[in-house]
Amino acid sequence: MKNIIVGQYIPGKSFLYKMDPRSKILALFILMVSAFVFKDITHIIYMLLGVLVILKIGGIPIMRIARGLRPIMILLLFTFTFQVLFIKTGPVILDTVLTLTTINIGIMILAIVVWYYTRRYIKSKFFYMVLVIVGILTMLSLFTPGTVISSSNLTIYEDGLLGASFIMVRLIIIVTLSTILTLTTKPTDLNLGLERILKPLNLVKINSEEIALIISIALRYIPTLLDEANKIMLAQASRGVDFTEGKFKDKVMQIISLLVPMFIISFKRSDDLANAMEARSFVPGNKRTRIHILSWQSRDTLVIVFCLLVLTATVVVRVYL
């Protein structure tokens, strides 16, 4: 649970912290657009390197980001697999027949069982799983003694592989960039910055202040709710709920015993928050003065100019190369 670091501010001193939140949000936006403009795997890998450089200069440990990426690893893996399997253009890289026979099905089951019981002793569970899957696939294509039960074709095309890697890198870049923003910006600053940036929307009757408030409250409450979930799990564990095991029917009960208090507590919290805001005379849409005044400095202009250059470069690359 503690791996989820989205929405979590970590104090620090690098230039990323000194920047104006407005320029950071704008820069994030521009860079994200650039990430979407790229169409070529080599270019987007250059961009990934660029992002790593930003991390390095900004003094954010890469491990932090990697840990934050872990929860979406499964998502990445799914996208990757589907892309690889369903894009069928370009030269063929791998063409093989996966054959299920009476003998290798046994080995496969054995491998899965061994994996299941040994995985808790392995530190990087994710790579262990990938390794086992790759191993099983290799065996199915190469080692086929015995009577054939069923067989199917596995064909991987170059475009599929490249496309899949491309989307993975793009997703990683986007998540990393947004994590940088929330890691280095205090929620209050983030709120203020968003509000200012969304100000033009007021012209079309969309209240930027409210949107900013909603976003910042949501971000603010992610860690709190995780903490609450943790406490509820402890309270239920002391009544004999074993969250680590159980049959399917027990699992449903376990989840209900976690979710119901979670909802009740969230509603209560939001009620309390609303009352607390009202008690401090918060009226939506009223004019307010600020404690923190944002100040746009030359370094912010510099960063934005740089990001715009990156964007222009990507557009040029996209159009002319």
Binding site: I232, A235, P261
Partner: peptide, 13 residues
């Protein structure tokens, strides 16, 4: 048997 400080963490039925 441990009774927690805050009852709202355990009531759910």
């Amino acid at each position: 048997g441990l009774v927690f400080q805050f009852p709202e963490y355990q009531l759910f039925e």
